[in-house]
Design a protein around this nucleic acid. Structure first.
Length: 498
RNA sequence: UCCUCGGUAGCUCAGAGGCAGAGCAAGCGGCUGUUAACCGCUGGGUCGUAGGUUCGAAUCCUACCCGGGGAGCCA
């Protein structure tokens, strides 16, 4: 048995492939079967004159996604999908598929999500999952080569006390348990045992967020390092993100091509320094005239595009009446694209004034909204690191800036192109007394944190860490418009199956 | 929870008070080294649900259900 991505070493040899019919086209003397086997796509040609009646009839009976075993000669041919094709001599049907719901045409999101278990077989989804795998591997590689230990934090936790986020509650032998929202506190304990550790696991947030950036169940990577201060933390985060991107660019060029990802921004992210702004500098930038001008310019561009689309639409409608059938189909598709883009433009035009007001009227001390992050990152060609946030908006365990007690030694890494926050981290408070006071100030139950406070009682050291959102990172790297396409079976508001 | 857009054939959509439509998919036939192939024919409908306005409702009104996008919150 041979895999499609190995075909290049079998040119002019006979091989047997096992896989599924991705698409097929038939004619009187020739049949074209596009086969997928998980490793790639290969066009198989069945010629009437070359095969027995049994093989011809078997090929003729095939439907989309039928499983088959197929034998033939490997021929290099640039006309074919993967550059190689199979001239078939034998074919066995393993199972003849029923009518496959996902046709090679376009489908809506709802339908595709209902059929996620099948949608995963489609080319773009296949490519995205392969990039996911590459990212996961590159992260392990990065940390393992730096002698971090990968250790897991528990998924059940006994308290919902850490912060403001809503957690999933579950029954734990008549006790309440919550699904973890972060492994960080446990990672700190493990870092005190091993120096440098990282967790890699699922986290759960019961927030009722319905946006392209949110899942209720997502995967987070949380390194935690003893003796690291905030700057070392930011350096590590930048090095890691660059390493991930470099790995994907090196190992997944085909996948990125299938995803039609423009890699310019990714290459820039690897080559350039990540911009670092303090929160205060970021606020100044948000309120600046340059930002206001940028948004005005954006409004003008959208309006101009709206006019252009309107004109194009009228032209198309005129042409439609006398167009030939194939051209009509083309026009219909373009009209749908225009409608979708028009909706987006209208939404942007509604939003930009709100964004502008949010930016220009931003008050020091608030946390950034989604639009503020987008506006900030729009002005740079590499990821942006914002550090030293107002302590008020950040978690109790973050260390205060020794130079300004109102600031927390926190940092966020914001991806460009509107993909938002992919990393959030901080230097942790290492003083027992300060931490006890914070817990009291936040009205948190101290007994729940007694084990955590022990870490400050027995050899407390400066330490830092951060959390990387796997799906958001993947979403950015692949240029996907929604995180639901970055995980095999997304869990989000109103979506628990398949 | 709020704002906003939507729900019409298996799928993607058009129809916006007056006969329920197209493309794809499915079935049959033809044709071609085809690339989401193409051409012809055939079958396919509780217009999200309930109520209302009207001579007449997919179309207008009300409520509800479901979905998309966004706010808040966050990775």
């Amino acid at each position: 048995m041979t895999y499609i991505n190995q075909l290049k070493i079998y040119v002019d040899q006979e091989v047997t492939l096992k896989g599924w019919v991705y698409n097929n086209r038939s004619s009187k003397a020739l049949q074209f079967i596009e086969l997928r086997d998980g490793s790639g796509l290969c066009q198989c040609i069945v010629a009437r004159d070359d095969v027995s009646d049994e093989v011809w009839d078997a090929a003729d009976s095939l439907k989309q996604e039928s499983s088959i075993e197929i034998t033939g000669n490997v021929v290099k041919d640039d006309r074919s999908v993967g550059g190689y094709e199979l001239h078939v001599s034998g074919l066995t049907v393993i199972q003849l598929a029923e009518d496959y719901p996902i046709t090679p045409k376009e489908h809506g999101v709802e339908f595709l999500m209902e059929n996620r278990h099948l949608w995963l077989r489609s080319r773009r989804q296949w490519a995205a999952m392969r990039v996911r795998n590459a990212i996961v591997f590159s992260i392990h590689k990065f940390f393992q080569e730096k002698e971090f230990l990968q250790l897991d934090a528990p998924i059940f936790t006994g308290n919902a006390a850490e912060g403001t986020t809503t957690l999933f509650e579950t029954d734990y032998f008549d006790d309440k348990a919550y699904l973890t929202q972060s492994g960080q506190l446990y990672a700190e304990a493990m870092a005190m045992a091993h120096g440098k550790v990282y967790t890699f696991g699922p986290t759960f947030r019961a927030e009722k967020s319905k946006t392209r950036r949110h899942l209720t169940e997502f995967w987070m990577i949380e390194p935690e390092m003893a003796f690291y201060d905030l700057d070392m933390n930011m350096d590590l985060a930048e090095e890691m993100v660059k390493d991930i991107i470099r790995y994907v660019l090196d190992h997944c060029p085909k996948e990125l091509e299938i995803l039609e990802r423009d890699t310019t921004q990714l290459k820039q992210a690897v080559e350039n320094e990540f911009h670092r702004l303090s929160y205060t500098e970021a606020v100044d930038l948000l309120k600046s005239n340059e930002t206001a001008a940028l948004l005005d310019q954006m409004t003008e561009e959208r309006k101009k595009e709206r006019e252009q689309l309107k004109a194009e639409l009228e032209e198309l409608k005129k042409e439609h009446g006398s167009a030939k059938k194939w051209r009509k189909a083309q026009i219909d598709q373009r009209i749908q694209e225009i409608h979708a883009r028009q909706d987006q433009i209208e939404e942007d035009l509604r939003n930009i004034p709100v964004w502008k007001q949010s930016a220009s009227g931003f008050t020091w001390g608030n946390d950034f909204g989604g639009s503020d992050e987008t506006i900030l990152t729009m002005q740079f060609d590499a990821p942006l690191i914002v550090h030293r946030y107002p302590a008020e908006v950040k978690a109790f365990y973050m260390k205060r800036d020794p130079d300004n007690d109102n600031l927390a030694l926190a940092m966020d890494v914001l991806a460009p192109e509107g993909y938002g926050e992919i990393i959030g981290g901080s230097q942790r408070e290492d003083s027992l007394e300060v931490l006890q006071k914070r817990i009291a100030d936040h009205d948190l139950p101290e007994d729940v944190f007694s084990w955590y406070l022990d870490l400050r009682r027995y050899g407390s050291v400066p330490h830092s860490g951060y959390g990387l959102g796997l799906e958001r990172t993947l979403s950015w790297i692949c240029g996907l418009s929604h995180v639901r396409e970055t995980i095999p079976f997304p869990r989000m508001l109103g979506r628990l199956s398949p």
